[in-house]
Design a protein around this nucleic acid. Sequence first.
DNA 1: AACCTGTCCAACCGCGACAGG
DNA 2: CCCTGTCGCGGTTGGACAGGT
Length: 268
Amino acid sequence: MSTPTCSEEVGVKKGPWTPEEDIILVSYIQEHGPGNWRAVPANTGLMRCSKSCRLRWTNYLRPGIKRGNFTDQENRIIIHLQALLGNRWAAIASYLPQRTDNDIKNHWNTHLKKKVRKVEADGNGPKPSSISRGKWERCLQTDIHKARRALCEALLIEKPADCASDDSSRTAYASSAENISRLLKGRTGNPPGATGAADLASTTTQADSASSSQGTASTSNSAVSRQPSSCQTPFTLLESWLLFDETVAQGPENLLGMAMDDAGGDLF
DNA sequence: AACCTGTCCAACCGCGACAGG
DNA sequence: CCCTGTCGCGGTTGGACAGGT
């Protein structure tokens, strides 16, 4: 069976995914885990290219995607990381594990970019960041301590909203089961059978735990596979060290003092 | 009510990175 | 090394929808 590729082969379906396709894809991933996308269309019979399957999973079906409005906290993080890293949405998304790079990219292009430009054009807005775009990376290459400080200055903010104790923030996080049951309702208004949705919900819940326990996700799926279930920090060990080690050593008051008081705060 | 314009967001496309042979 | 296949990322598009006139 020939595997469809994205551009050249005939019979490759494009456009919006149907609930049935979603079910097939989620069921397959529940069984095999994410990755090896090339095999997905071949093994499932989906007339979609591997890219499309991966995109659908990572941007829509994977567990733990947070949907809905971006919080001010998230907006600030995005603005600062964008100033720091540029349009490296996957990197930015790694700091907001419940958001996809596509979501962040869309949100930036439709909301934040204009907002930032407007504030900057007014001349009274915040500096995009205390360090220029890419400076942190250059610092990293030359002086790890400077880099650490630069990143701290750019990123340190008040307590992350994701770790807020109120349950409202937690309920905003959608499991994949919720994602899919919602899409089944929303897109068809006529889900393919209540049992189908229920089955799917159960399978995706299993997929959730399966994928989290497998640890076989590819590198870019590392962010994808991070689970939001607990109040875990999205920072990797290295990132945590870069961000907090020296600052913490200087005392918590410095940590607060280095918060982004000049960048982003005026926007919201 | 009809049309226009802007917004949102899912999905596609092209390219680069990377691993394996 | 070089080639090939695969994957992931960022830019962009296009359809659906909402709000304004």
